[in-house]
Write a protein that binds this DNA or RNA. Structure first.
Length: 229
DNA sequence: GCGACAG
DNA sequence: ATCTTGTCGC
């Protein structure tokens, strides 16, 4: 791991101030190495919330078979839950565990998809953006619901999307990843543009609502998949 | 002051 | 997020 960016033990007011500072360090243009592996990250909870469980799944990117991607590695990391869920401060609850899981990987991905917002956040530092800074890797946020921003109705065809705005600023996109299903909220985290984020999400989309990396991580983080390997 | 509010 | 059964639909 690289040098620690900051302390995690902060009270809400300090955490919010830090988010604004860190958001200024996000790279908003593309800086990706050739993609051969994509990771999906998600966090779940056990013991009534006392234990935080981070799951990372690494998939081999194969344009010839996409969106069918093979799982190269998957890890689960557990640690005591640090703080409660507070809207806007999700990353302080989840990123530490995610870092623990990444430290267990033997295969390093060039791109990371996270369950949650990228810059589509009140201070432009959602969990995907925050994790990207710590890992110094390109990250994309794929959330199942909206945290902030406004948008028009999105079309009903799979692949339709509309911009997500915060005033005049475009902070993400609302994507109909699957017909007849609630749309997902895609926003860039670190080192990727919205256009590139959308392209990768679309490429990893099967017939399900979530792109493969996030879908598999979601399953591994949840206790639906008590399996570990 | 009154809502909204990722996971 | 998690607690939880059956049920509607491809």
């Amino acid at each position: 791991m690289l040098a620690p960016l900051h302390d995690w033990n902060l009270v809400p007011s300090e955490a919010r101030a830090l988010q604004s500072q860190l958001a200024e360090r996000l790279e908003t243009s593309d800086r990706l190495a050739p993609v051969s592996h994509i990771a999906g990250v998600d966090i779940g909870f056990e013991d009534g919330g006392e234990t935080t469980r981070a799951a990372v799944v690494v998939l081999k990117w194969n344009p010839a078979t996409a969106p069918d991607l093979s799982v190269v590695e998957q890890v689960v990391y557990r640690e005591p839950t640090r703080m409660p869920y507070i809207p806007g401060l999700l990353s302080f609850r989840e990123v530490p565990a995610a870092l623990g899981a990444f430290a267990m990987l033997s295969v390093q991905p060039e791109l990371v998809m996270v369950d949650g917002q990228g810059i589509a956040h009140p201070r432009r530092l959602g969990v995907a953006a925050h994790l990207g800074l710590w890992l110094d890797l390109p990250t994309i946020g794929i959330a199942k619901s909206r945290l902030c921003g406004k948008h028009a109705e999105v079309g009903e065809q799979r692949g339709d999307w509309v911009p997500l705005y915060a005033g005049a600023e475009t902070i993400g996109a609302v994507v109909r990843s699957r017909a007849k299903v609630k749309p997902v909220y895609v926003s860039p985290g670190h080192r990727v543009t919205l256009e590139t984020s959308l392209a990768w999400v679309m490429r990893c989309l099967g017939r399900t609502k979530l792109p493969e990396p996030t879908r598999l991580a979601d399953r591994l983080a949840s206790r639906r998949d008590e399996r570990q390997s």
